Amino acid sequence: MEKPLLIIGNRNYSSWSLRAWLLLKAFNVDFDEQLVELFHPSARPTLETHSPTGKVPILVYGEKDNKVTVWDTLAIAMHVNEYFTDIDIWTGTDKPNTETRNNNQSRINSAYCQSIVAEMHSGLTGIRNEMPMNIRATAKIQPSSACLADITRIEDIFDDCLKGRSADSFLFGDFTAADVFFAPVVLRLQTYADASNIALQPMTKQYCQTMLNHPHIQAWQQSALTETRIIEEDEAGEIMSIAGVLANNHSF
């Protein structure tokens, strides 16, 4: 299979890009990447060439009549699972392991994983709108009831998945697409929860720390902290502190 190209946006802000990038990294897909600046004219030629929606992320490979383009994060996940990895992204287990795949518990976990990934992909708009991903910032907001309801729902998901598992477990034990799709939530909570006096359940804090310890999450965050562009559309709340290269150049 030809090496694909993943086109992503600014690491500090682009939660959708993080999902696609983390998915490919976590499931051992060899790929090239190209970063374009969100909401900037310089991105237009690349987006017009590859994306019918003008949005990132985009996964492309092949030439001319054989070119394959996938332009939605959930579609990228399904395409990668079909063509690029020997690990089933819904269970985190090896595909050749037919005994595991035919196990009823595996089917239950796969169905649950697919359901919460779809729920995250299509809903939970309160937390999305009020807590945009902003990795370098610590910020205080006044969350609405819709945002708090989303956090409660997310905590219920985490609790249901993690109960009875080890303290450093991912949502289904092995790393799956569910961890990929909830990764930006973890980074959102890191930015806003403590500064906004949003009390999180111990299980949520435990899972967030497990994700923040993941080497690919740490690599993405370190790259985000080297970025200098500020996108006002993705800045929210009262900025309490800034990390990274902008730390000494920001007035509060």
Rank of each mutant, 00 (worst) to 15 (best):
Q190L: 14
K205R: 08
A199R: 09
R165E: 08
L171H: 05
A195L: 05
L148R: 09
F158S: 13
V186G: 07
D156L: 15
T210G: 01
L212I: 04
P184L: 11
L200I: 03
Y207I: 03
L162E: 01
T152I: 15
T191E: 12
D179Q: 05
K205F: 00
Y192A: 01
M211V: 10
L212P: 00
A146G: 11
D194P: 12
G173D: 06
S166E: 11
F175A: 10
K205L: 06
I154A: 11
L187E: 08
F182K: 01
T191G: 06
D179N: 06
F182Q: 07
L148G: 05
F182E: 04
A167Y: 15
A167L: 13
D179W: 04
C147W: 13
P202G: 00
S169E: 06
D159G: 14
L162C: 12
R165A: 08
D160V: 15
P202E: 03
S196Y: 10
A195S: 08
L148T: 10
D194L: 11
I151S: 07
F172K: 07
F181L: 08
P202V: 01
K163G: 05
D174E: 15
F172T: 04
M203L: 01
Q201M: 03
I154M: 14
A183G: 02
L212C: 03
K163Y: 12
S169N: 07
F182A: 02
R153V: 15
T204V: 01
A177C: 10
N197R: 12
E155R: 09
R165V: 08
A199Y: 03
G164S: 02
T176G: 03
Y192R: 12
D150Q: 11
I198Q: 01
H214L: 11
Q206H: 00
D159S: 15
G164N: 04
A195Q: 08
A177Q: 07
S166D: 09
G173C: 03
A146F: 00
A199F: 07
M203H: 02
F182G: 02
T176S: 06
R188I: 04
A183Q: 06
Q201F: 01
L148E: 09
P202Y: 00
A149T: 14
G164F: 01
C208Y: 00
I154R: 10
S166N: 09
K205E: 02
A167S: 15
L189W: 10
F175N: 07
C147F: 15
D160W: 15
A167Q: 15
A193M: 03
T210H: 01
T210Y: 00
I198C: 05
R188Q: 08
N213H: 05
A146T: 12
Q201T: 13
D150F: 12
I198Y: 05
T176E: 02
Q209F: 09
E155A: 13
I154T: 13
S196N: 09
R165S: 10
A195I: 07
F158N: 14
F182D: 06
I157M: 12
L171I: 05
Y207T: 03
I154H: 06
G164I: 02
A178W: 00
T176Y: 04
D160I: 14
F175Y: 09
S196R: 08
R153A: 14
L189C: 13
F172W: 08
M211I: 14
L187G: 03
N197H: 14
V180K: 06
N197E: 13
K205T: 03
A199M: 13
D174R: 15
L148W: 05
F175L: 11
T176L: 00
P202W: 09
L162K: 09
R188C: 04
D159V: 12
S196E: 07
A149I: 14
